[in-house]
């Protein structure tokens, strides 16, 4: 079925891209803290998770164009929800950091934060639909 094929295709992009993203970030953080690797090398390595993010988003965009219109609408809603939540948090935390002595949150946490909220809101929307069906 079309939806399942789209999901499988998406997971084939999502899983390796996420893995590269996580490994890339952990590698750069580890090398910066525990080794004497040149800064230019670290800057070049920082491009790895950034590029994987583009691949990941491209896979998500393709997934959205391949699923049916209702699921697409649900995806768009959950993306807006994820963006609203993460951007409002980033704005609030950014300002609070200026006003109070708080530890700065690395900006790359925005990506997993966004995907966590987006994925959760999409799952909740699907679950609500399933509950209605069983009524």
């Amino acid at each position: 079925m079309r939806q399942k094929q789209a999901h499988t295709r998406y997971m084939k992009i999502f899983a390796p891209a996420m893995l590269v993203y996580v490994i890339g970030i952990l590698t750069v953080v580890y090398l910066r803290e525990h080794t004497e690797v040149a800064r230019t090398v670290l800057i070049a390595l920082s491009l790895v998770p950034a590029v994987s993010m583009i691949v990941w988003m491209w896979g998500h965009m393709r997934y959205i164009t391949e699923i049916d219109e209702y699921l697409r609408a649900q995806q768009v809603k959950s993306i807006m929800f994820g963006l609203a939540a993460i951007m409002s948090f980033a704005t609030f935390w950014g300002l609070i950091e200026l006003l109070v002595d708080l530890p700065p949150v690395p900006i790359f946490y925005v990506v997993p934060g966004f995907y966590l909220i987006q994925g959760l809101s999409f799952a909740i929307a699907c679950r609500l639909g399933r509950n209605e069906e069983s009524e």
Partner: peptide
């Protein structure tokens, strides 16, 4: 719902949402 979804090449969730009036289908659908 799954059967109808297969015939229309849409998901079961889409059929459910249309039946419940939570979603109005596009003109092509």
């Amino acid at each position: 719902q799954a059967n109808l979804g297969e015939r229309l090449d849409v998901s079961r969730q889409t059929i459910n949402a249309i039946e419940k009036g939570r979603y109005d289908p596009s003109l092509p659908l």
